[in-house]
Design a protein around this nucleic acid. Structure first.
Length: 343
DNA sequence: AAGGCGGGGTT
DNA sequence: AACCCAGCCTT
């Protein structure tokens, strides 16, 4: 693989990203900030560049260093992470910041091996940080590289079955500018060798690419068989008082949307069921919302009620909808509240 | 090795 | 409506 061609391409066409120290800056001697690189990499796990942008700006504004983030309460981090999804990332992010401050004097470890021991940092993220920040010659393999390499080698099995083979192949072609090479390969995957289109004539890897000689390079990688997504059904209950404040509570410590904020809901079951309301009274129906998670689809009937005597409710709190920006409400429950018409 | 775990951009 | 995104962790 012509890694020199990849670097030449990167010097001309590198994406300009807020968390990136570009090739010109690197050449001038600017060093990436491991905190910002780490923060961006965690946010980018299974998340698009476009989505991450505003979250990255908000986090670095609130918490410019790992010390600031470690000193913040977890609840504050969850509030800012709300809407970004995969909330275990936010809990691990905070735990990682605390670990870096307490066990590493606030300095991120420099090797991928040491980085991978930290919470929320796996094979990809550890390699990415070490390569980008310290030019460690290690294979950085994300979803983009899975696709680019599956096409380059015309891989005839699903990537998950050949991940280590791809890693070994990539490992042998890493040039001295390991960080720029890693980012270049990801940029190629994001802008040239995309899932549904392959702009092979513009690709610096075109000379050795095996899929390029096939009729349709986008047939690679071979997809694993997809499992169908079941639907679950339930009810969501929006309770408001005379001031228009709405009753919220915290979800359990584990499982889906752990430790995030919600309105009360029923169990979510395989079949629709009649609502069992949290309290008696006149519950007004607001129709249904649909929300799609990774492994199931959820349909919730939304109900609301005005409570005169709110004192009976336990383990929760009343919040002004105008201040919902300070609540750790995932998108699902923002949809519920919007559907109720009360927030 | 397989499945749980969000949400949105793109096509 | 389907696909998939700078994956990690648990079982």
């Amino acid at each position: 693989m012509d890694s020199a061609a990849v670097l030449r391409w990167y010097d001309r066409y590198a994406r300009d990203l807020a968390w990136r120290t570009g090739p010109a800056e690197r050449a001038r001697g600017d060093a990436p900030d491991p905190y910002r690189v780490w923060l961006s990499e965690v946010m980018l796990q299974q998340t698009t560049v476009a989505t991450v942008g505003r979250y990255f700006a908000r986090f670095t504004s609130l918490w410019p260093t790992v010390f600031d983030l470690a000193a913040a309460p977890l609840d504050a981090v969850l509030v800012e992470w709300a809407g970004l999804g995969y909330y275990a990332r936010a809990r691990n992010l905070h735990a990682c910041a605390v670990a870096v401050v307490e066990h590493h004097d606030g300095v991120f470890p420099k090797t991928s091996n040491a980085l991978q021991a930290l919470p929320g940092i796996g094979a990809y993220t550890s390699a990415a940080i070490a390569a980008i920040c310290h030019d460690e010659p290690i294979a950085v393999l994300d979803g983009n590289l899975d696709r680019v390499l599956a096409r380059y080698y015309r891989l005839d099995v699903p990537v998950r079955e050949a991940k280590e083979t791809l890693r070994a192949a990539l490992q042998t072609v890493i040039p001295a500018r390991a960080g720029d090479f890693a980012q270049a390969m990801m940029d190629i995957g994001a802008t040239i060798c995309t899932p549904r289109k392959a702009l092979c004539t513009s690709c610096p890897l075109r000379s050795g690419c095996l899929a390029r000689t096939t009729e349709n390079p986008t047939l690679f990688p071979i997809k694993a068989q997809k499992t169908e997504r079941p639907t679950r059904y339930g009810h969501a209950f929006v309770m408001f008082d005379g001031d228009g404040d709405i009753f919220l509570e915290t979800r359990p410590d584990k499982g889906l949307l752990a430790k995030m904020t919600q309105t009360p809901t029923s169990e979510w079951t395989a079949r629709p069921s009649d609502p069992r309301f949290p309290c008696p009274g006149y519950w007004q129906p607001h129709g249904r919302i649909v929300h799609v998670f990774t492994h199931f689809r959820l349909e919730l009937e939304v109900w609301s009620i005005k409570l005169v005597d709110a004192a009976a409710l336990e383990h929760g709190w009343w919040a002004d909808p105008r201040a919902f920006g300070r609540e750790a409400l995932p998108t699902l429950f923002r949809k519920v509240l919007a559907q109720s018409g009360l927030a």
